[in-house]
Amino acid sequence: MSMFGQVYVKDNKYRIKGDFHHLTPNVPIRNADEGWKLMGVTNPRDMTYIHSYGGEAQFFEALGEGKLLGTRCDNPDCEFKGTVYQPFRIHCADCLGKNTVFDMTKLAKTTATVHTFMVCERAGAFNTLDKPIKFVNIEFEGVDTILMSYLSVGDPEIGMKLLPIFQTKNPTCTILDLSWVPAGTKAEELPEGFTF
């Protein structure tokens, strides 16, 4: 029995364990209209990648702890000093200085508003969200950008007030650990594993 590939870092090097690929045999593709003559072949390939979050790792870690981190340019020499970024941006888009990280959970809880949204009936392979997927793009007071995420309860509308929720039980350590619900949603309505 094979084992899923697992990775940890020690001495700033990846240490890997288990299988990072799985063998599936290829099969010929034949033409039913012309005596089953050969047309091609399938190429199965199931492979696990090793991906670094780098300077954004703290953002993804914080989601599992129920916190939303944003960043801000505090460089006094930046023409656009004070720009606030959510999505969390490691470096300022203008001066390329290192941004200051701050906890914006409270700001999100008090000012998150739907800028636009989309209810999507389809998904691609490897999707793990329930369909239809309710995309929401969220404005926050004083933030210069508009975060894309998904709504877990109710139906979205432009201008709707939202609250962030976090997958704090068994977090996936991906952006899916952050979701949103309409203001006024009760704790018992939240999806499994999520808390305010």
């Binding site: 989309m118 995309f135 991906t174």
Partner: peptide, 23 residues
């Protein structure tokens, strides 16, 4: 990291812009 895990469906990322224009 920020978009693809949301359904792995590009149409959705595009369509939010369409929704805003539509309204």
């Amino acid at each position: 990291d920020w978009e693809s895990p949301l359904g792995h469906i590009y149409t959705g990322y595009y369509a939010v812009m369409a929704q805003r224009y539509w309204q």
